[in-house]
Write a protein that binds this DNA or RNA. Sequence first.
DNA 1: GGTCAAGTGGAAGGCACCGTCCGCTTCCGC
DNA 2: GCGGAAGCGGACGGTGCCTTCCACTTGACC
Lengths: 207, 207
Amino acid sequence: MPTALPRLRADAAANRARILEVAREAFAAEGLDVPMTAIAHRAGLGVATLYRRFPTKEDLVAEAFTEQLDECAGLLDAALADPDPWRAFCWMVTQLCEMQARDRGFSAAFVTASQRTTEFGALRERAERGFAELVRRAQEAGGLRRDFHPADLSLILLANGGVRAGTAELTAAASRRLVAYLLQAFRADGAAPLPRPTAVPLDAALR
Amino acid sequence: MPTALPRLRADAAANRARILEVAREAFAAEGLDVPMTAIAHRAGLGVATLYRRFPTKEDLVAEAFTEQLDECAGLLDAALADPDPWRAFCWMVTQLCEMQARDRGFSAAFVTASQRTTEFGALRERAERGFAELVRRAQEAGGLRRDFHPADLSLILLANGGVRAGTAELTAAASRRLVAYLLQAFRADGAAPLPRPTAVPLDAALR
DNA sequence: GGTCAAGTGGAAGGCACCGTCCGCTTCCGC
DNA sequence: GCGGAAGCGGACGGTGCCTTCCACTTGACC
């Protein structure tokens, strides 16, 4: 932190915290297009207060999601510590996709955030290198097919991000099934059982 | 068609056609959020003219995509005519995903359209039944895994719909790779080669 | 060619959102 | 307590969109 900004007044600090809490909840449930006014109101505050703490919506989004980005970093460390590379790879993909499925704002926030500060950029780069290492090991061990490319992570997240069913539960289930299919496709060999199919109506399917 | 609406004046008919042409192009390239004003202007017309022909944006969208819906129906018929069920299944999935990747508005339009008239609803239902038949045959023949469910079509289209890279070409390539992975996962056995990986930056990946 | 419904364009209405401004209120240090 | 800075809320300006309105033009038919 470059400049030590003056401490907030007690009530202001509490409000700020409440704003973040509400924002995280709202973004997760409804995506990033929740109006600022709505967030402020749900936090029992006026819009001005919100804008005093977070000059733009982007700032709010970035701040609201730092927690999750840290969580991602943690996941990666955990995966890299696993002695079984293929299991680590599967686990990592599963966890990431689960986070994404759980939180509608996650993907969008990731983009917003990583375009903002170099801090996020660095975090992302580190994540990419870590994942590449995970891939290398899993291929070395023979679990992961040779033609899997670390950049396929983008593909996975894009595809998984597209999965949005009616309710959160449906989305989660659909995402799990997709991940199971994908991991099956990523195996160097063999086949594995799948979770039960999720009945998403075609209507809800496309969008 | 319930009532034979009066023939359009020659110029009006031409304008209507040009609107549709422009709209299809715009929706495909930029998605459904192209402003009505922009479409009218690109067709060399005022907004009012557009609204005279298509009372709401939804109407325009629906009309602009009927062609593609018919194309889908055609695909299905072709697939059902193929004597090799597994090949037919793969081909159908590939074609659908390719259409979807080529046209940014496709998915959204499908939803809009199918919620409008019973005509579209019927078309969709027929498509669902046809695809289910395709699935049944492919499983019967032993190419498709037994636990694939017809509703997985939704999952496929959702996932594929999420794939959006920078350019149209990148998107198409990414989509092809995803489809290859998925078809691999759908096989009752074995493994197959993949197209080369597409380097979508993580930034672009998420959204 | 003349008539007039059909067709046309641009301006304006309505709405939802982001972000700002300004007068009032509340906490904190003395 | 009390003064003043920090905090606060709601109204407001700006933008971009869908859609409507209305005065003007144009093509088809007699």
